[in-house]
Simulated scan of single mutants.
Amino acid sequence: MKTEFIVSDMTCNHCVQTITRAVQGVAPDAAVQADLAAHRVTIESVADAVALRAAIAEEGYEVQPA
């Protein structure tokens, strides 16, 4: 299942790495793609979208559904 979020304060590759680690902490099989220019994170995973969003938010990012 594909889940997309807008992470408005994702600004660099370090942010992408942090978000990827957070998502994979909840869903180790997740494939994470980030578009820095659009501030969009796309996640392919069977994990619940609420859990994925919470994992990103716990790292201090502003997360909204895309």
Rank of each mutant, 00 (worst) to 15 (best):
S8R: 13
E4A: 12
T42P: 01
Q24M: 07
S8P: 09
A57G: 07
T11F: 12
V16K: 09
R21P: 00
H39F: 03
C12L: 10
A55M: 04
C15R: 07
G25Y: 02
A22V: 06
V41A: 01
D48E: 10
A54F: 01
D9L: 05
C15H: 10
A49E: 14
T20G: 02
A22C: 05
A31W: 06
K2L: 15
T3E: 11
V7F: 07
I43C: 03
V63M: 00
V16L: 08
A55E: 03
R53N: 02
V46M: 15
V26E: 06
T3G: 04
T18A: 11
E44C: 01
D29H: 07
Q24H: 02
L36T: 12
D35G: 06
M10L: 09
I43P: 00
A49M: 01
C15N: 10
A34V: 15
H39I: 15
E59I: 01
D9M: 01
E4V: 07
Q33N: 13
A49D: 13
Y61R: 03
V7W: 08
M1Q: 09
A30D: 05
T3P: 00
G25F: 06
A47Y: 02
C15S: 09
E59P: 11
V46P: 00
A30S: 04
V50W: 05
A55G: 07
A31Q: 14
A66P: 15
I56L: 03
R53H: 10
E44W: 03
A47L: 04
V50N: 11
V63Y: 03
I56W: 06
A57F: 02
K2Q: 14
A51V: 09
R21Y: 06
A22T: 07
V7E: 04
A22S: 07
D29A: 10
E44R: 09
I43L: 03
P65F: 07
G60M: 04
V50L: 11
T42A: 14
L36Q: 08
A51I: 06
K2I: 15
E62S: 12
I56T: 01
A54T: 11
Q17K: 13
A54S: 12
G60P: 08
E44N: 12
R40F: 01
A37H: 11
C12W: 11
P28V: 01
H14K: 11
G60D: 05
T18Y: 04
S8L: 10
Q17A: 15
Q17P: 04
Q24P: 04
Q64F: 03
Q33K: 14
M1D: 13
I6Y: 14
K2V: 15
V23H: 02
L36W: 11
E59C: 05
D48Q: 10
V41Q: 00
F5K: 00
F5W: 09
M10F: 05
A51Q: 14
K2M: 14
A54C: 04
V32F: 02
M1C: 11
K2D: 13
E44L: 10
V50M: 12
A22G: 02
